[in-house]
Amino acid sequence: MLPPQSFLPLKPVAFQILMSLADGECHGYAITQDIARRTSAAMRVEPGNLYRFLKELLDNRLIEETNRRDDDERRRYYRLTTLGRKVASAETERLAALVTEARGKKWLRGKA
């Protein structure tokens, strides 16, 4: 297994997908809806784009398919792997460090 560091930095969409899967398994549509909701529709991931990211994340074993099926047989559910969790965590730390550094530059208006 590759070290989590080797996947950094994550692309924003990939990070958002991992976040959507943080609380449990989801299907594709649910992921787009979740991202739109959390980012107040600032980031809209269209399915074509979404599935390319899903493919990459699946190929890198950051997420996996589950056996869960609902009324629509065609629909697939995805969940985080251990590696995916570690990568998401490493990315969060990287971003936090970046933000801490940027904070030193007094860029955060009114919150320094």
Partner: peptide, 21 residues
Amino acid sequence: VFPRRFRERFGDDMTATFEAR
């Protein structure tokens, strides 16, 4: 428009998603 292998892997899932939308 997607490559065949991509379609075989995700086509059904994507169609389901599209129908839902």
